[in-house]
Computed example of a mutant assay.
Amino acid sequence: MNSRATAYHHGDLRNALILAAAELIEERGSADFAMVDAARRAGVSSAAPYRHFRDKTALLDAVIDFAFFALGEQVQTAVQTQPPGSAEAIIAIGKAYIRFMREHRAFYGLMWGDAGIRALQERPSDERSAAGFYVLMSAVEAWCAQNPVDERDVLQLSIKLWSMAHGLAGIALYGHVERFLPQADVFSLLESSTHTFLEGLRKRC
């Protein structure tokens, strides 16, 4: 009996199905699977998923939540490896963000595409998808507290730094960085860009 079936028999059918769907998405590189596929992967009957999910869209929403949670955990782990308030802490978050997207390519479209937008619109007050961003905001706030900068709008600065990491992740994901800059290291690009941005803030004082 596989782990998902074991989880099901312990009353954790919902999570077993989310894990099954996530594995199918990663294996196939897309969300091209049916509810029966997730049920089969979880080791349950074809009717079992509907005890927790009205349809595949609801299951995908749960997978998106799971992906954002995993991303948040990864950036939280990364920032803890660096001194609080340092530029390195901010860079570590950006690198973790890019690394997550590279390792889970199939989730990029789900999280940032139409499915992710729809899920956000349906649950505008749900902050689970923002967990990783709040880690970045805390790191930016700590950096501002330790550096002489005039600009202390932490939210605005965080969005600018986030867009830097997200932009590099997006274009690197499909090979566009290497297309224009062969042998480029996207992590080095992020590091130099972040230092340039932060040093620019300091020089404005």
Rank of each mutant, 00 (worst) to 15 (best):
N2G: 15
S3A: 11
A5Q: 15
H9K: 15
G11I: 06
G11S: 10
L13I: 12
L13Q: 03
N15G: 03
L17R: 01
I18S: 02
I18A: 06
L24R: 14
E27Q: 15
R28D: 13
D37G: 10
A38R: 01
A39H: 04
G43W: 06
G43R: 10
V44A: 13
S46L: 04
A48E: 12
P49G: 09
Y50V: 03
R51E: 11
H52W: 07
H52K: 11
F53I: 04
F53R: 03
R54F: 05
D55E: 06
K56Y: 14
K56F: 03
A58D: 11
L59R: 00
V63I: 04
F66V: 04
F68V: 11
F69Q: 06
G72N: 09
Q76F: 13
A78P: 04
V79T: 15
Q80Y: 09
A87I: 14
E88A: 14
A89T: 15
A89V: 11
A89I: 11
A92Q: 13
A92N: 08
I93D: 02
Y97T: 06
Y97P: 02
Y97N: 08
I98Y: 09
I98L: 12
R99N: 07
R102V: 04
A106M: 05
Y108W: 14
W112P: 01
W112Y: 13
D114P: 09
I117T: 06
R118M: 06
A119P: 07
Q121Y: 10
P124F: 06
P124M: 05
R128K: 14
A130L: 14
A130Y: 14
G132K: 00
F133Q: 00
F133I: 00
L136E: 01
M137N: 02
S138V: 11
V140T: 07
P148G: 09
V149Y: 01
D150F: 15
E151M: 12
I159L: 02
K160S: 00
W162M: 01
M164H: 03
M164L: 12
A165D: 03
H166N: 10
G170V: 01
L173R: 04
G175R: 13
H176R: 10
H176E: 08
L181T: 11
L181Q: 04
P182K: 12
A184D: 10
D185K: 12
F187L: 07
S193G: 12
F197T: 12
L201V: 11
L201G: 02
C205R: 15
